[in-house]
Write a protein that binds this DNA or RNA. Structure first.
Lengths: 227, 227
DNA sequence: CGGATACCGGTACGTCCGTACCACTTTAAC
DNA sequence: GTTAAAGTGGTACGGACGTACCGGTATCCG
């Protein structure tokens, strides 16, 4: 949050005030009553998610969102009280979508019980399913993690960040259970942190051997941690 | 990098050009020849590091750096060709300092050979030594990780990000060696990723039990992974 | 079918940004 | 000491930002 308009905008009274007194401003609308309004709001949110992925946190500006959604600038201030609210909702949407994708990829991976098989499934769930050469996808996923870190400075985002971590852990625990591993108290957590760390490192550093290294390390951890 | 001035600024020729032709502009100076210039440059860099820690990546602006350093705005453009260069150098400095601090804390921790002892030493090395209630310190360390993620979008920062990862792994490997653990091929890497992941999660989510959980998980991993 | 209300969108303000400019002062070389 | 180079700093420009304003239009309820 770059604070233009630091605090308590002075309301410079640009116009001579042609009237309009004694009415509370209608203000932005979080839940539009009409169908079209709801669709417009969703379109804006979708555009914000896309910008978040492509350009990161700072790319989500009112103007960019409006342009991407094919809507006028004022629509963004009509449906969202502030940029922060827009970003927070986009973050929540992104987290939900990513968790859903992970869960889906893990369920269709049908892992066997060997550490190698489960490690493969986890690496696949981590990736998007796109080929290893897809650099655009690597960049797109950075947005999620950038916002995750931003959550460290913004309590409104922090609650979503915790949902992200908890969701990832749950997905990993479920995968371990389905693969027939005993429900160890710490095992799922260790594997989850390991998976997230390796994933993020891959997204940031882009080393070509990252995927295979992740597979090796996960398999090793599964082999030893789970007796 | 919010791209104001997207590319190839049109040079609007604001003044009627009073002369000044046929001379390559003196331009910014990366390595000042005079002592005072060197100190001023270092002061600016120091200010940039501080801003990076306190406000994150977007807080490092020419004006903020200059003000914090007690220098005029033009000093920042004199010693650094662009904001990106300023940020990159500050990132490198931050990484070097953090690695140095980690190494120092680990060396004086004199870990015993038990997994619990080493886990304690690692958690201490991760933290700054400040008490658990020091929230300002938590925020300050976020800057490093935010920049680390930004490196995923900027090749100039990416090389520094790799140095950060490699440095952390080396520190962990050294700690394992000093504690008498056998130099396993993957062990240090697993512990390093685990440590970094838990650390980052703690910084972002701020859960009160994060430190003790990190200790538990690290000890468990050390106990099982290393036979 | 008429009025209230939700929605729309063009436009504007003030702020902050990166960076350039250029007259001025200090330093160092001869 | 003179002079070229290095350093200094006040100021300016163009652009992008968040957000407010407000006349106009569509939709819904009665």
């Amino acid at each position: 949050m770059i604070d233009h308009h630091p605090d308590a905008a002075p309301r410079p009274a640009t116009r001579p005030s042609t009237g309009q007194e004694a009415g509370a401003a209608p203000g932005p609308v979080a839940r539009p009553s009409q169908e079209r309004g709801r669709r417009r709001r969703a379109t804006l949110l979708e555009a914000a998610v896309g910008l978040l992925q492509e350009g990161g946190f700072t790319a989500v500006t009112h103007r960019a969102v409006a342009q991407r959604a094919g809507l006028p600038l004022a629509a963004t201030t009509y449906y969202f009280t502030s940029r922060d609210e827009l970003v927070a909702e986009a973050f929540a949407l992104l987290v939900a979508g990513e968790l859903h994708g992970m869960r889906g990829r893990l369920e269709e991976a049908t892992p066997d019980e060997t550490p190698e098989g489960l490690a493969t499934a986890l690496v696949v769930a981590m990736g998007s399913g796109a080929g290893p050469g897809d650099d655009g996808d690597r960049l797109r996923r950075l947005g999620l993690w950038q916002l995750y870190l931003q959550a460290g400075r913004d309590p409104a985002l922090q609650v979503i960040a915790r949902q992200w971590t908890d969701g990832c852990d749950a997905v990993v625990a479920e995968a371990l259970r389905r693969a027939g591993y005993p429900p160890g108290r710490h095992a799922a957590r260790i594997i989850g942190v390991l998976l997230a760390g390796l994933w993020m490192e891959h997204l940031v550093e882009g080393r070509p051997e990252a995927q295979s290294e992740a597979h090796t390390l996960l398999a090793q951890a599964l082999r030893t941690i789970l007796r």
